[in-house]
Design a protein around this nucleic acid. Structure first.
Lengths: 220, 220
DNA sequence: AGCCACTCTTAAGTTTGCCTTAATTCCCGC
DNA sequence: GCGGGAATTAAGGCAAACTTAAGAGTGGCT
């Protein structure tokens, strides 16, 4: 799951970024509105967090530009506690949710999950593939009822596959979902994580199509 | 993946077309707006690349006509660098992305992939020829309900044929669709794959026209 | 701050399965 | 029947995928 954060306050941005990365998101970060618009088009994030109080362009204007360019991913806006006017303007311009500063990171994470679900058309926080159950909120995974402990990357990978069961995704596509800009890997990392997932769950769960990519069996 | 290019500049169109073919797309090409609208309805492409500067109808008008006729596939528009007005008009008329000329082919390919991804779940990724069903997303093929395991090249070949049922395609044309630049083969590879496909599916599916090429029977 | 545990990335070695090649046979049209 | 395109077959080579292990990096705990 790829996410774009448009936020000028460096320390706040750092905090959010690390928290989100820990939660398994690939996070891109822009400090200015113009850069945010560019990044949104280049990186095609699944979610955007947009601070309305940017130093260059007004945040609402950034949002309008995005929507005008057919950018469809949900946008969550961050506003100051008392800035009701721009909050409303933001929602009118196509924001999907808002959060007033200051906020708890857990709250942010919860809202993001809700947004993901809303656009994915999914109603529960659980993904099921065969007898593997993935809880996207608690990051818990069970296989045949037994809890399985997955690391961050393993979880992100499994989830990326589970969101589109049956669909084949290439290594490159999967890497895009796991890694932010400047985090790119240059090895067979995906292979290794796939291997570890197969070991922790069961080998037949993830199938490889030689020369094409990986997919999850379309769970019965 | 089937694609329609509406572009009047012959040399540009040729360049784009070959690049796209090598990237695995089945490309139809129209030089005029009217013809583009007709082809879009006849060929049902999964993606459209539309140059806004056409000699007959205005490109934006083409797009409006398409959308008015319930044409749902994503459309990427090509504009001159400075023609901001028609770019915006294009987006408002239902374009999904744009690219300003001149552009690098890689950029175009990247955008197309992004568009595919965006609509990935929406477009039905199934081709049917008689009782052979080809799922391009999961690379699964069934023949009379039974799953058949195809290798990458076999799948690509079957897909190339199935995208144009009834049309005779020469070995050279098929090779072009299977191999990218610098991968050319110098033997009867296509023959062999055809043979294996016939064995795995059924012999009558693929017909040879002596001296011309191969075709799929126009599914009953 | 320092230590410990855990995870991630890299890279090398191994396995696997597919693709190409090419030789041979088949068959269609002349 | 003859020529040439098409079908068939089998094997070797090769690249993709798998496996393993080690070292770097990270975070957590005391």
């Amino acid at each position: 799951m790829r996410l774009l954060l448009i936020e000028d306050d460096q320390s706040l941005a750092d905090g959010i970024t690390t928290a989100l990365r820990h939660a398994g998101y690939a996070v891109d970060h822009a400090e200015l509105g113009v850069r945010g618009v560019a990044l949104a088009q280049a990186a095609r994030p699944d979610l955007v967090i947009l601070d309305l109080g940017l130093p260059d362009i007004d945040g609402v204007e950034v949002l309008k530009q995005l929507r005008r360019r057919q950018f469809k991913s949900p946008v969550l806006i961050l506003t100051a506690r008392d800035d009701l006017a721009s909050k409303i303007a933001g929602l009118d311009a196509g924001a999907d949710d808002y959060l007033t500063k200051p906020f708890a990171v857990d709250e942010l994470l919860a809202r993001l999950r809700a947004l993901e679900r809303r656009v994915g058309g999914i109603t529960t926080a659980e993904l099921r593939i065969g007898d593997v159950v993935i809880n996207t909120a608690s990051h818990e995974v069970t296989c045949g009822g037994k809890a399985v402990k997955l690391s961050r990357r393993e979880f992100a990978l499994l989830r990326a596959l589970a969101e589109r069961p049956g669909l084949i995704q290439s290594r490159e596509q999967l890497e895009e979902k796991l890694y932010s800009w400047g985090e790119e890997v240059s090895s067979n990392t995906v292979d290794v994580h796939i291997h570890n997932l197969r070991k922790k769950l069961y080998p037949e769960l993830i199938r490889n199509i030689r020369g094409v990519g990986y997919k999850l069996e379309n769970g019965q």
